[in-house]
Design a protein around this nucleic acid. Structure first.
Lengths: 188, 188
DNA sequence: AAGTTATTAAACACTTTGTTGGTTATTTAT
DNA sequence: ATAAATAACCAACAAAGTGTTTAATAACTT
């Protein structure tokens, strides 16, 4: 076993944490590799043994986030589109609550669209097939548009909530979002 | 007059254009000041005579965009929230259509949240006061949440449309968005 | 057409990056 | 508990990019 070597696990974790904490105070671009290493108490040579550069460090961090989110999403087994969206909202908000520090770092650094891309990657196929089977939904609006609309709205509210966790509880935000998402045109 | 000196106008424009065109092919971080200058046929010393660094160049570019968008928005004199939103959507899509190159550069570089911030800056006060006077709107959902929801959704669809201008016309996208925005709870 | 000022060119110190070779310390597996 | 393996450390390095300065040249304004 190479990857489970405690030293590797320890240094990688230290580097991730250092990056997250610094991103809460500085722009990602202002952060130098040596800054990260100083904060993480890791030698710069060691950094380069594990990551190509700081971009690779950030991208690995986001990959981990994506994996964690994906695995949480797989529990969503609702089939109708409305129920599916509601469950997705709950899972997403719970996820960013759990990983608050990381998401704050991303939000402060204006990298929200990375999240948009990530969530698109994760749910797009899933959502589109779900929407296909949903008879209730208004057929005049293309599914890809609906998906973008929904994802953009939820992420933007989610990121806003990060800064205002004291203003609204998670449950409140979830309820607001559920009320706001486009209703099926059942009358049609 | 200093600022109207043709040489200044010309070099600044050349630098802006060079940046926009390079951002369509490269990451902003990969673009070096000397790259911009080479493409713009401007000496590097001249660059530093006008801008602190490349971040300042980008930020000035976005300021210009913001000014142009703001002045277009000022024509929106609708008072009810629904009408206001519809007009906002039209103005926004027309705006990104006009400035397609710049927005594409921003979108490709994952800097969409800069737009979110910009639009929030521009309309937030405006929208909130409009919503205050709107009796039809469901009072149980806070106005800031509605605003974030709406802005996130519209920007995400707008950015998606940039990549798919051949798939949907502007008018189609506008109509989809109008159908998707949260309806007033007139029944309440 | 004269005066002003932006642009250019070359050279500079400085910071950050990414790499290398040799040494020390930690972990794993026997 | 110890030996073998390998990760982390340290110092030094070349290369690339940044931002500034100086003096000469070119372009614009009135």
């Amino acid at each position: 076993m190479e990857k489970d070597d405690l030293r590797i696990v320890k240094t990688k974790k230290a580097l991730y944490n250092a990056l997250i904490n610094m991103m809460k105070e500085k722009t990602f671009e202002e952060i130098k590799v040596s800054d990260i290493c100083n904060k993480a108490l890791v030698n710069r040579t060691t950094f380069y043994a594990h990551f190509e550069d700081k971009y690779s460090l950030l991208s690995n961090l986001l990959d981990n986030l994506k994996k964690s989110f994906t695995s949480e999403l797989e529990k969503n087994k609702y089939s109708t589109s409305k129920e599916y969206y509601i469950e997705l909202i709950k899972i997403f908000l719970t996820h960013i609550e759990k990983e608050r520090d990381t998401y704050l770092a991303i939000a402060i650094n204006n990298r929200n669209s990375i999240l948009t891309d990530m969530i698109n990657d994760v749910i797009d196929n899933d959502v589109i097939t779900k929407l296909k089977n949903d008879e209730n939904l208004d057929a005049t609006i293309p599914k890809d548009i609906i998906s973008k609309f929904f994802i953009g709205a939820v992420i933007n509210v989610g990121m806003y909530w990060l800064y205002n966790s004291d203003k609204y509880t998670k449950e409140e935000v979830i309820n607001y979002l559920i009320e706001l998402i486009p209703n099926e045109k059942t009358s049609k």
